[in-house]
Nucleic acid binder design. Structure first.
Length: 201
DNA sequence: CTGACGATTCACT
DNA sequence: GTGAATCGTCAGC
């Protein structure tokens, strides 16, 4: 397990990074226990030129300030008043690129994930969808601004390779109102993986 | 200060 | 497929 270095996140093309994140492993060590899952669905948000991005047009507010932080920083915000959505900030400081992690396949700490999700038995919904995976992984807005070059919250490469042809691309989920950006092919997912959210699987 | 609105999820028909 | 839950954020007054 090799922790992804700053150079992975600091690249300029957020779409390339979003695709590269497919197959990587998100790890959270909360001091007591560890949970980990393989990333099977991501969405890229291309900064100031992307109408679906919180930073569209250079918008800078208290909420999205972390998008302007250096690469490899966690951007976590609350959606619909109750869901914590986990993103990875990319590119250099002041370029507000981010990638939303939308689904994971559990690898470690499944019992703890089920406990956090208040579920008795494992199913594909445990880590399907950005709000659900945050609960399963124990990620909340407390992690907003946290470095992913840290020892308790990071993304690693375990040398499992997802072939490019096994990765599908589609428009993003839940951005219908973002006019032309609604159809940008910025969502990446593992074809046929049961943990992937939205349509199609 | 106020109101409209989400990068969603879940239960229910 | 439809609708409710639930509240921080932000533009606008």
């Amino acid at each position: 397990m090799k922790k992804l270095p700053l150079s992975f996140y600091s690249r300029k093309n957020v779409l390339v990074i979003a695709k590269d994140l497919i197959g990587k492993v998100l790890i959270h060590h909360n001091g007591k226990a560890l949970t980990a899952g393989r990333i099977v669905e991501t969405e890229a948000y291309d900064g100031v030129i992307d109408r679906a991005s919180h930073a569209y047009g250079g918008r800078r507010t208290a909420r999205n300030e972390i998008m302007y932080a250096e690469a490899g920083t966690a951007y976590v915000y609350i959606c619909y008043g109750m869901h914590h959505l986990f993103n990875v900030v990319t590119n250099r400081k002041d370029i507000p690129h981010a990638i939303l992690i939308r689904a994971l396949e559990p690898l470690q700490g499944l019992d703890l994930m089920l406990k956090r999700r208040k579920k008795k038995k494992p199913d594909h919904l445990v880590t399907r969808g950005p709000g659900s995976l945050s609960v399963a992984m124990g990620i909340t807005v407390k992690q907003n601004g946290h470095s992913l070059i840290s020892d308790d919250l990071y993304i690693a490469d375990d040398d499992v390779r997802i072939p490019s042809k096994a990765i599908a691309v589609s428009h993003r989920i839940g951005v219908e109102s973002s006019r032309e950006a609604a159809v940008y092919p910025y969502r990446f997912y593992v074809k046929g993986n049961p943990f992937v959210s939205g349509h199609p699987r």
